[in-house]
Design a protein around this nucleic acid. Structure first.
Lengths: 275, 275
DNA sequence: CCAAAAGTGTTCTCAGTACACCCATGT
DNA sequence: ACATGGGTGTACTGAGAACACTTTTGG
């Protein structure tokens, strides 16, 4: 942790040798969330429209202050619930990274712990729920730094450094579905293999061979299994009804072998070297 | 970012509706570093011995306060330099994650942005350099949560939540060498393929087939190439001298195909789901 | 001569790829 | 009938795994 190594190492001018517990540089700490869902075959992210300055009228990731006695994950789950109504454990939430460049918020020094959340297709946020607009955006319609395939509609300007955070978040999602069963977080509890395949195709922006996809999924241990009890089938428009599957609850957290996306799929941006 | 969404979302009691720029919960922000090197065929991490309470006598990751006008990567590089003398760009440094559970530092609310650094074999830290002990520890000699192979010598107690951070850091290192050329950050500028193989073996805690390793390395594009100019060879004790190689400077940041560690290698712990 | 490490080649196997074909349903 | 998507099987190919053998040095 970040134990103030008082006499062990020279502190900055703001926290000198004989410091007392209040003599440290005071930061504001917030959480920001990139909340993803897959819908209409596309990867969507939830953005809210800012009503006030700075960046009034711009779109931003939902987020807010961490309370002084609140753990960071708790703050993230709280924000997620406030924005989407998703209950704890009904979705997946993980830390993405921390963004704290001085000046990123013009008002004060803010360090934001960004998070990524996945959820099955969610309803449209209720516009009037708290006087502010919120919308699902197709990720490909946003102009994100370092991401190809952006046929940027970009009349959507993102506030603060949220374009960077969101680009990192998209990379994270694409990478995680490769070696974890997290793709199942994007589909309802019971799902068809076709639906699951659509998740991969949306996240990676590529097309997969149906036959090989099925074989890989069914050969992966601890990933999915035929839906218990009612072995019914579900229709998805036209065509033959599909068998239903469920995610293995006790499955491993990393898939072996991983499902590698084809090399031509959406390029992975490297982890930011902090240089 | 974490823009305080003033009227957009209800703030906590500490940052209520009509807040002013000073009315936010004040946090201390620090950086902690897990600095790794490979030596004697083992993965080593640099720890410092705490002289004072809390956790006097315990070992801890080096770290310190972020200054109020200092960017987080700058603070991490500064700490790295103070601890090891490594200059910017002479090693690899990246953000690992942020740890901010209330009470992790008994004195105040501290949020620490942990980092991972790789460097070639470094000299022993000078004990007298600033009155405090610092040592390289074999990672396998530490008792880290969720990591197998710990024949824990564990008379070494880690301060704060540093055991958790360090365990996460070890995972990160193991995962990164799989799909990035970062293993070359652990060896000198000119190195033999045997030395490079030792890095993988140390990080993964496994043995690799020499022949297959060479083939994979040489077939990977943008990874290594024969040492320029002097095509000399270097001896490593006894045996035939080996050809020298250099990392491709302009290489890709992700290797294709990745070099998968064998399934029996040190298990990867999943990304912490923030639940 | 022997040990140790570098360097080269060869076989075997299995997973990913591509593709062909049948099945069940809606219109 | 035909379009649409589900479901199954098969042949091809290339990369990883295992292992045998040669080369160059120090002792």
């Amino acid at each position: 942790m970040s134990t103030p190594e008082t006499e062990e190492q020279p502190m900055s001018a703001t926290a000198p040798e004989g410091y007392d517990a209040t003599a440290y540089p005071p930061f504001a700490v917030t959480v920001d969330l990139a909340i993803f869902t897959v819908r209409d075959g596309a990867l969507k992210v939830l953005l809210i429209e800012r009503a006030d300055d700075p960046y009034a009228g711009a779109w931003a990731l939902p987020g807010g202050f961490v309370e002084i006695d609140e753990d960071i994950p708790d703050a993230a789950w709280r924000e997620l619930h406030e924005e989407t109504g998703i209950d704890r454990f009904a979705g997946h939430l993980e830390q993405l990274g921390t963004y704290g460049t001085p000046g990123r918020d013009p008002r004060m020094r803010v360090v934001s712990v960004a998070h990524v959340a996945f959820a099955p297709d969610l309803p449209d946020p209720e516009a009037g729920s708290d006087a502010r607009t919120a919308r699902w955006f197709d990720v490909d319609d946003l102009d994100l730094p370092g991401l190809q395939g952006s046929h940027a509609d970009a009349d959507v300007a993102l506030a603060f450094d949220h374009a960077i955070i969101l680009a990192d978040a998209v990379d994270r999602v694409a990478a995680k579905v490769e070696y974890t069963p997290l793709a199942t977080s994007f589909v309802p509890e019971q799902f068809t293999l076709g639906e699951l395949q659509h998740v991969y195709e949306a996240v990676w922006g590529t097309r997969l061979d149906r036959s090989n996809f099925r074989r890989w999924v069914k050969d992966s241990t601890g990933f999915v299994h035929p839906a218990a009890g009612t072995d019914r089938r579900r229709t998805a428009g036209t065509g033959r009804p599909a068998a239903l599957y469920t995610a293995d609850a006790d499955g491993p957290t990393t898939l072996t072998p991983p499902f590698m996306r084809p090399a031509d799929a959406r390029a992975r941006r490297p982890t930011q070297e902090t240089s």
